[in-house]
Write a protein that binds this DNA or RNA. Sequence first.
DNA 1: CACGCCGTGTAGACATTCTAGGTGAAGCAT
DNA 2: ATGCTTCACCTAGAATGTCTACACGGCGTG
Lengths: 120, 120
Amino acid sequence: MSTRREENRIDLLQGTLDLLILRTLLARPAHGHAIAKTIERNSDDVLQVEQGSLYPALHRLVRRGWIAAEDGLSENNRRAKYYRLTSKGRKQLRAETTKWEKLAGAIARILRPVSGEVKP
Amino acid sequence: MSTRREENRIDLLQGTLDLLILRTLLARPAHGHAIAKTIERNSDDVLQVEQGSLYPALHRLVRRGWIAAEDGLSENNRRAKYYRLTSKGRKQLRAETTKWEKLAGAIARILRPVSGEVKP
DNA sequence: CACGCCGTGTAGACATTCTAGGTGAAGCAT
DNA sequence: ATGCTTCACCTAGAATGTCTACACGGCGTG
């Protein structure tokens, strides 16, 4: 009956949340709740964005000048804080995307069989 | 003159080092120093494995029963601790590999343009 | 015999996520 | 009216794992 945690989901890797938020805001400005939902949906419900991670991350990004906040009303007529990418944020997004691709590529290289690993 | 940190390298994401170590030991047993070198080489020198991360990770994996240690001598005739995968470790490696692939796939999905993002 | 490299190790700082709480208000049903 | 659910925000504290920066002994070479 209770909102049980889905077995299928995965904990975030430390450092990936910023990237996901920035990327999500590139599409369009959004409030926190919507950002989380968007990330979860766009990942086919693999990624899980906890509120206790989301809001500190949002505040962190504002502090660093990568996103900017503005008060507004949600689609459901509730008070909400809309966030948008700043130009510094766009630059940061490019940097983090590159870094992620390099890292994912490197790990993929290690994960698949290395030449010489299997006896000839 | 001094061993300056390479600009090109990337910090590890929290949680990835275990996977890399296990995967490296699947190929063959090795001592700590060699594991680090292997990871760095196999990633085309993108990944950097710091000693302060490596040894705690190794001890952690032993504690969890995923790898086992044995004293021996290195190729250079120095005292060294050789680590090998246990069967529990092999199982863990499979689990972590799957998890990584799911996660990397999910992030990749978010990173590339989503349908509907660009105005039709 | 000084020096560099090999190989191991630890302490403490740091960053980020998670768990687990909490607030207030809108909208619906009773 | 009153309760209930959902939306949307927030925070404290624990847990985790990495980093920087040390330290040490031994081997082989110049």
